[in-house]
């Protein structure tokens, strides 16, 4: 039940509470965005029990990966962001 996974926002609806369509590798779901009101279409969010709980920070992710000093790792992130 504690599972929380990343997905990408595809659409935002201005309803109460704020919601949007989030894609998880192609499977889309209606998700509550009330906890991430600054989110934009295209952002990646961590989703837990139907709620986005954070907007993933791309620069922080790149920095973490770069810290591992492995060129194959940074290669992968370029591929998957294409």
């Amino acid at each position: 039940m504690c599972l929380a996974i990343p997905g990408q926002i595809q659409k935002i609806h201005q309803d109460t509470p704020l919601s949007g369509i989030v894609s998880f590798s192609g499977i889309t779901k209606q998700i509550c965005l009330a906890m991430v009101p600054e989110a934009k279409v295209g952002d990646y969010v961590i989703v837990h029990v139907g709620f986005a709980i954070s907007i993933l920070d791309e620069r922080a992710a790149q920095a973490s990966l770069a810290l591992l000093h492995d060129p194959t790792v940074t290669g992968l992130i370029d591929e998957s962001s294409a």
Partner: peptide, 17 residues
């Protein structure tokens, strides 16, 4: 999947271990 696959990279896992 972005933010998943790159954090499962087997070479990087071995390197970190």
């Amino acid at each position: 999947m972005k933010y998943v696959d790159e954090f499962r990279n087997p070479q990087a896992v071995m390197h970190l271990a």
